[in-house]
Simulated scan of single mutants.
Amino acid sequence: MINQVYQLVAPRQIEVTYNNEDITRDKVIVRPLYLSICAADQRYYTGSRNQTVLEKKLPMSLIHEGVGEVVYDSKGEYKIGTKVIMVPNMPVEEDEVIAENYLPSSKFRSSGYDGFMQDYVFLDHDRVVAVEGDIDLSTIAYSELVSVSWHAIQRFERKSIKNKNSFGIWGDGNLGYITAILLHKLYPEAKIYVFGKTDFKLSHFSFVEQVYHIHNVPEDVTFDHGFECVGGKGSQSAIDQIIDLISPEGSIALLGVSEYPVEINTRLVLEKGITMIGSSRSGAQDFQNVANFYKAHPDVVDKLSLLKGNEFEVKTINDAVNAFEQDLSTSWGKTVIKWTM
């Protein structure tokens, strides 16, 4: 069959290309329904990545966050019409110790390989996660980002000391909000403090113990463990502030991505015996765990729905371009695309 793929060929320029796909392959064919734009997609779309990187990875279909419905399954494991979360990570090997999202050989959609902006997405059977009930598909479109936070929390749980009475989260954006929701549900007795710089964004964290502006933190504030969800230029000051305030032998989970190296106060890291835990992306099991979490805790989906910003129905390439352009000026939340190409 001929599949239409909508690729970014140059910054701010999307064109359609046609791939001849073999439907007899051992794949699940999924029709995208709702997609969500990520900051990484925007770095490609706006051309803010290194020029060498752009030349190497383009042309490429964007977006790695999305849900769809099964239209064909070569094995018959999924019924036609089953709603599924699409997993963007594509491992080509297994390792007994190293997770699939850390294997250098693994491929990732919308990062050198075509993402979900296609008429149909051809996925391996273990790259789709079925969801049940009348769950809001437009909200769980950004489940990939939820899985990233989930993965980081699981790594933190395995590698940190048993004191887990309080957490500090740096970052008042999407990832900070999701991390706060998950920590609040997973550690219901713990106190959660959120540190940010935008009052409007901080106002969304009404369910945590306390919010602080990063330039107005009381001297006696401390916590057992920290989560850095800032990234970019602000990651260095965030990490520095966490190191200053964290309790001895606490762990710092690093989730924010920075394009440039950052300086770290190693003297205090050593003095306090701090453990720093890096996390990147997630694997298929994380997606399955998140889907199970949705089913067990429907209120989590309700809280996540507050993160949804603008929703655009995309019928044409111009609609897609408009969605990306509008997302650049969004002050809060995730831009969702209703995919009707």
Rank of each mutant, 00 (worst) to 15 (best):
K164G: 13
N289K: 13
S206Q: 06
M341E: 03
H225V: 01
S251W: 07
V257Q: 08
F293M: 12
P88S: 07
R12F: 03
S111G: 03
D220S: 12
S235E: 12
V67E: 08
P91N: 05
E144Q: 14
S280Y: 13
E325Q: 05
S206E: 07
A180F: 04
E21T: 15
Y18M: 15
W150M: 03
G226F: 02
F122P: 02
P11V: 04
V336Q: 02
G309S: 14
S48V: 00
K334M: 12
G196M: 08
D286K: 05
A296Q: 15
S160H: 10
Y260R: 09
K79H: 02
R155F: 01
F287V: 12
A323M: 06
G273V: 13
E311L: 12
V71S: 03
Y102E: 13
Y45S: 03
N3T: 15
Q4G: 14
Y44A: 07
E249D: 14
V211K: 00
K75C: 05
L304E: 10
Q326F: 04
L123I: 01
K334H: 14
G273I: 13
K315W: 00
G333Y: 11
I243Y: 02
V84I: 11
G196T: 09
P104M: 11
Q288D: 10
N216Y: 06
R25F: 06
G333P: 06
N318Y: 05
S105Y: 01
E93H: 03
S235C: 10
Y260Q: 10
S110V: 12
E313D: 13
